[in-house]
C-alpha cells in the first residue's frame, strides 16, 4: 500500500537543468553557441497537463524536442518514470513518449494513407500479430479521435486541418503512451476547430490518463487546458505556477505583460483594460544580455539584474518565480 502511494506521488517526467545549445557559424572558423534552452527544470505528474508558453524563439519547442531526444541535449538530465532518458533507453521509451506536431500539413506524409500513418508506430514496435489485428487497432484509434472509419484508405491531403490534427493525435496514441508533447498542436487551427481538438485532448486525458506537455503561445487556450503553466523567456523558465494562480496573480514582470497583452474577445473589457506594452524586441539568443535575460525590456530592472541571473524560487504553493525584484 505504502509503495503504491510512493509511485503515485513520483513525477512521471522530471527535467533537471536541461540545456540545449546549437553551434552557429558566426565567422569563417568561429562558432557561437545559440543557447536555445539554458537550464530548464520542471516535472510533470502522471495524468497532468503542464502548459509551456512563451514567444517565438524562446526555446519552448526545443524543450519538447530535447525531452524526446530529437536533439542531443548539451547538458542536464531527463528522467521518465524514474529512469534516465539517454540515447540507449530512449529506444524502448519511444512507445510511451509521443508527440503531436504543430503543422497539420507537414506532419503527415502526403504519400501515405491514413491507415498507414496511424499504423506506422504499430509497425515499428511490431504491436500486432497479423494484418487483421493491425486493422482493428487502427480503426479503434480512428474511432477514439472521432474519425470516420471509411476514411482509412484516404490520403492525408484530402482532409481539413482539424481532421489532419486528429490523424496526428491517433498516430501519437497508437502505442498507448503515458506522456505526449503537444507542440503548438492547436495553433494552426481555426477557432471553432481548435475548441474541438482541445476538448478531445481533455477527453483523452480522462479516458487514458496521459500527461501532456502542452506547448503553445495562446495563453487563453493554455490556461484552459493546463493544470500548471510554465512561462519561458529566452531559454529559461521565468515562472511556474498553477494555471489559475498564474492567471490571477502573475508575479514576474514578463508574465504580467504577457497576460495583459492577450487579446481578449470582449469589446468592453478589452477597451477598459490597461495593457502593459513592452518596449522593444526580444534580444537575439546569440547575443543574450548578461544576467537576467529580460532586464532589457523590464520596468523594474536594477543593477543586480545585469550582474546575476535569478533562479526560480518558491513563493508558496509551488508558485516559482525567477526575479530579483518581485
Amino acid at each position: 500500500m505504502s509503495k503504491e502511494i510512493i509511485t503515485n506521488n513520483a513525477p512521471l517526467l522530471e527535467v533537471k537543468d536541461l540545456k540545449q545549445y546549437f553551434p552557429i557559424k558566426t565567422g569563417l572558423f568561429q562558432k557561437t553557441p545559440l543557447k536555445a534552452v539554458d537550464g530548464v527544470s520542471f516535472s510533470i505528474n502522471p495524468g497532468e497537463t503542464l502548459g509551456l508558453v512563451g514567444e517565438s524563439g524562446c526555446g519552448k519547442t526545443t524543450v519538447g524536442r530535447s525531452i524526446l531526444r530529437l536533439y542531443n541535449p548539451t547538458g542536464g538530465e531527463v528522467f521518465f518514470k524514474g529512469e534516465k532518458v539517454d540515447a540507449k533507453s530512449i529506444g524502448h521509451m519511444r512507445k510511451e513518449m509521443q508527440m503531436v506536431f504543430q503543422d497539420p500539413y507537414s506532419s503527415l506524409n502526403p504519400r501515405m494513407t491514413v491507415e498507414d500513418i496511424i499504423g506506422e508506430p504499430l509497425d515499428v514496435h511490431k504491436l500486432y500479430q497479423n494484418k487483421k489485428e493491425r486493422r482493428e487497432k487502427i480503426l479503434d484509434l480512428m474511432e477514439l479521435v472521432g474519425l470516420n472509419a471509411e476514411h482509412a484508405t484516404r490520403y492525408a491531403h484530402e482532409f481539413s486541418g482539424g481532421q489532419r490534427q486528429r490523424i496526428g493525435i491517433a498516430r501519437a496514441l497508437a502505442t498507448n503512451p503515458k506522456f505526449i508533447v503537444c507542440d503548438e498542436a492547436v495553433s494552426a487551427l481555426d477557432v471553432s476547430i481548435q475548441a474541438q481538438v482541445v476538448n478531445m485532448f481533455e477527453e483523452l486525458q480522462e479516458k487514458l490518463g496521459v500527461a501532456y506537455l502542452f506547448i503553445a503561445h495562446d495563453l487563453l487556450v493554455v490556461h484552459h487546458i493546463s493544470d500548471r503553466i510554465a512561462v519561458m523567456y529566452l531559454g529559461r523558465v521565468v515562472e511556474i505556477a498553477d494555471a489559475d494562480e498564474l492567471n490571477n496573480n502573475p508575479v514576474h514582470p514578463y508574465t504580467q505583460s504577457l497576460l495583459s497583452a492577450v487579446p481578449y474577445p470582449d469589446p468592453i473589457k478589452a477597451k477598459q483594460r490597461q495593457r502593459i506594452v513592452l518596449e522593444g524586441d526580444v534580444p537575439s539568443p546569440l547575443h543574450m544580455p548578461e544576467g537576467c535575460a529580460f532586464r532589457t525590456r523590464c520596468r523594474y530592472a536594477t543593477e543586480r539584474c545585469a550582474k546575476e541571473c535569478p533562479s526560480l524560487t518558491d513563493r508558496g504553493n509551488g508558485h516559482q518565480v525567477a526575479c530579483w525584484n518581485k
Partner: peptide, 22 residues
C-alpha cells in the same frame, strides 16, 4: 464562435466547439 473560445469565466468547464468540419 463566441462559445468556442476559451474564456476566463468558463475555466474548468468544457469548451463548446462548433461540430463538423470547415
Amino acid at each position: 464562435l463566441l462559445q468556442s473560445i476559451p474564456n476566463v469565466d468558463t475555466i474548468g468547464e468544457k469548451l463548446k466547439p462548433i461540430p463538423g468540419t470547415p
